[in-house]
Write a protein that binds this DNA or RNA. Structure first.
Lengths: 215, 215
DNA sequence: CGGCAATTTGACCGGTCTCAAAGTGTGTGG
DNA sequence: CCACACACTTTGAGACCGGTCAAATTGCCG
């Protein structure tokens, strides 16, 4: 999911409104609610999740600064997922009405929106592939690399970072149990692939992890 | 994935070109190829799949008459998935150029395209959820219901139909092995939930299957 | 009708899950 | 600033689902 281009935000000036920061766990929107706006992450991070009756829930994806929240609901008008802040997070809002009005005048704006939706679709399909065909170990290695790359795109270190999700959230996102995740992390550490202290992680052997991830 | 509305096709007259039917196994496009057009299924069915080096591949979704093929590539210009006919299938093509040109003049056309992409995204996320949180049995029950509903939307019987995919393809789509699928189908039959002869299937207890599917 | 692909069935194995319990952080209120 | 409570994380033991390998059976197309 590429960042929302800065020049684009520029052209939206006057239509985008910065909201006050929210804290970890606060909800941006819930599945079933009417969707009235698009949110753009300014600082912090967020996750979207789906849930089934019965309590089972899954974190479909996570979002970093520059990413757009609420795309799933853009054209239906109703949210199909729930979006929650992962840490203290600030977003800007763009109302659906302004967006619709602007879309007519700015072909490149709607290009960008569609492009982001496109990327979300491709990401989702690849995650499907991973969950269905890879082992837990491969998925975890892939995840560590994925986070690293996305942080890298935003100018942060790709080698050493703070995990944006808790163990519970990571396990859930990868379709495994926290116990399994914990064991795998311990294993990676034992093999010298990473160092780990709480949420702080160092990728000691990117190559090794990439190879493990299996593509 | 809703069907492409008939009145919309009407308005596209002169821009949409019917292609000659292709047979089962023929490829509409491959991952990596340049994307120059959108395809709309007229008769028959198709599937899209992703693959990793190493041969592992996954069928992400399947498409029935009225569905649109190639959405994943609409804005990047390069296909990220491979699309293959499931049976003798006829599609209509709409070139990307015409589409871009038309999009300016027809706000509702781009609404529709985005809406379809939206639906594809939501479907993909839900499939993620299913693969990650449901048992093989639940996924299979859910799949049988899903096919039934999609056929129903198109005016076919929801009770009795011909499976659009082979066992291998179904298993792959659901993230399990053909052996597992075969055993589960045998089980469903033994329990009186379905009858099955080759690809012809009857859902004897929709309710039971729905309950099994778990939501 | 022959041959090959698709499907089914069986036996066994292994990766993950489940249940349980012990550690480790972390935030809040006193 | 400390201490307590509670959430998060780790570790262990055992069970089970689904995968793997192998072989028999069925079905389909030339």
């Amino acid at each position: 999911m590429a960042a929302f281009p800065a020049d684009d935000l520029e052209s939206l000036k006057g239509h985008v409104r910065a909201l006050r920061p929210v804290r970890r766990g606060d909800t941006f929107y819930r599945a079933g609610e009417a969707a009235s706006r698009l949110l753009i992450v300014h600082a912090g991070s967020a996750r979207i999740s789906l849930s089934r009756q019965g309590g089972r829930e899954m974190i479909c994806d996570y979002y970093l600064p520059g990413d757009t929240l609420g795309l799933e609901a853009l054209h239906t008008g109703t949210h199909t997922a729930t979006c929650v802040a992962l840490e203290t997070t600030q977003v800007c809002e763009l109302s659906r009405n302004s967006l619709m009005r602007l879309a007519g005048r700015h072909p490149d704006l709607r290009e960008r929106i569609c492009l982001q939706m496109n990327r979300a679709l491709v990401r989702s399909q690849h995650h499907q592939l991973d969950i269905a065909t890879k082992s837990s170990e491969q998925r975890l290695a892939g995840f560590l690399i994925d986070v690293s790359m996305r942080l890298g795109e935003r100018g942060y270190s790709t080698h050493s970072y703070r995990l944006p999700l808790t163990r519970l959230e990571i396990a859930n996102h990868l379709g495994m149990r926290t116990e399994t995740l914990s064991r795998l992390l311990a294993d990676f550490r034992r093999r010298g692939l990473i160092t780990l202290a709480g949420r702080e992680i160092d990728l000691l052997q990117r190559e090794g992890l990439s190879r493990l991830a299996g593509d």
